[in-house]
C-alpha cells in the first residue's frame, strides 16, 4: 500500500511532463488543423492534403526517408558488427558518436564547401582522372549527408544488440556445422532484429520530416513534408495547413511504430 503511494508521488513529474510536452502539443496541433487560413472552423485543410501536390510530397518524403534508412542500415550493420570485434569497443563507439555532438547546420555548411564545384570532393575526382562534376544539389549529396548525420543513431541500437548476443550461440552454430553465412542469417541477424528495428525507427521517422538539409544540400530540389510545414508556419502563416500536415506525419509515425513493433510480440 505504502509502496503504491510512493510510486504515485515520484511518477508525478513524469506524468506532468507527458501531459505538458506530449499530449498537450498534439492536441493543440489537432485543434489548429481544424481552422482554415481565415480562422474559420472547417475541414478544408484535410481536403487540401489529398490534392496531387501534397500526395506527391508524401510519396517523395517516404521514398527519400526509405533510401536514407536503407543506406544507413547498409553501412551501420557491418560497422556495428566490426565494432563488437575490436579491442577497445567503447572508445571506437565514442569516436563514432562524437560527430553527432556538432551542430547539424555547421556540418551542412561544411558539406557545401566539400561538395562544391571547387571543393575537396571534386579535387579528388579530378585527381583520379574522373573529372569534376556536380555533386552539390543532387539526390546523391542529399542522401549522402543525411546518411552521414543519421548513422550514429543506427549504429547504437545495433551495436547494443550485437554486444548482448551470447557468443556461445555462435559457437554452437559452428559446432553443428553451419557456415559463416548461415550462422549470420539464421542466428546472428534474427537475434539482433530488435536492434535493427529500433535503429530503423530512429532514422526513418526524423528522415520523414527533414527540412534544413533539403535547402542547404539539395537546393530545394527535394521537397519533403517538413519543408512544407516550415513554409506554412513561417512564410504564409497558415497555421491550419501546417498543423494538418503535422497531423498526418504523427499518424504516419504511429503506423510505422505499430508495424515495426507488432512482430516483436509474435516472436
Amino acid at each position: 500500500m505504502e509502496n503504491k503511494a510512493k510510486f504515485n508521488v515520484y511518477s508525478l513529474p513524469y506524468f506532468l511532463w507527458i501531459v505538458c510536452f506530449v499530449i498537450a502539443p498534439i492536441l493543440l496541433v489537432l485543434y489548429y488543423s481544424l481552422f482554415d487560413i481565415d480562422g474559420n472552423f472547417s475541414f478544408v485543410n484535410y481536403q487540401n492534403f489529398f490534392t496531387p501536390v501534397y500526395l506527391m510530397m508524401t510519396v517523395n518524403s517516404f521514398w527519400y526517408a526509405f533510401l536514407i534508412t536503407f543506406f544507413s542500415l547498409l553501412v551501420a550493420y557491418p560497422t556495428a558488427y566490426l565494432l563488437t570485434k575490436t579491442k577497445h569497443k567503447q572508445l571506437w563507439l565514442l569516436l563514432i558518436i562524437v560527430p553527432s555532438w556538432i551542430n547539424l547546420l555547421l556540418k551542412a555548411y561544411a558539406f557545401i564547401g566539400i561538395f562544391g564545384t571547387y571543393g575537396a570532393a571534386n579535387k579528388f575526382l579530378e585527381g583520379i582522372g574522373i573529372g569534376s562534376r556536380q555533386i552539390l544539389f543532387t539526390d546523391f549529396s542529399f542522401i549522402f549527408v543525411s546518411v552521414y548525420i543519421f548513422i550514429p543513431f543506427m549504429i547504437l541500437p545495433i551495436f547494443n544488440a550485437l554486444n548482448k548476443l551470447n557468443p556461445t550461440l555462435i559457437a554452437a552454430a559452428n559446432d553443428l556445422g553451419a557456415s559463416g553465412w548461415v550462422t549470420f542469417r539464421r542466428v546472428i541477424f534474427p537475434l539482433t532484429l530488435d536492434g535493427v528495428k529500433s535503429g530503423c525507427q530512429v532514422v526513418f521517422i526524423p528522415a520523414l520530416s527533414l527540412f534544413m538539409l533539403t535547402r542547404l544540400i539539395s537546393g530545394n530540389r527535394v521537397i519533403t513534408l517538413g519543408t512544407a510545414i516550415e513554409q506554412h508556419f513561417l512564410v504564409i502563416q497558415d497555421w491550419g495547413m501546417g498543423s494538418t500536415i503535422a497531423v498526418f506525419l504523427i499518424i504516419f509515425m504511429f503506423l510505422i511504430m505499430a508495424l515495426t513493433g507488432a512482430r516483436k510480440r509474435g516472436v
Binding site: Y109, I112, L136, F137, R215, L216, G219, N220
Partner: peptide
Amino acid sequence: KAIVGDENKL
C-alpha cells in the same frame, strides 16, 4: 541549379 537562401552570397 538550386533554390537557396542567404547561402547564395557564399
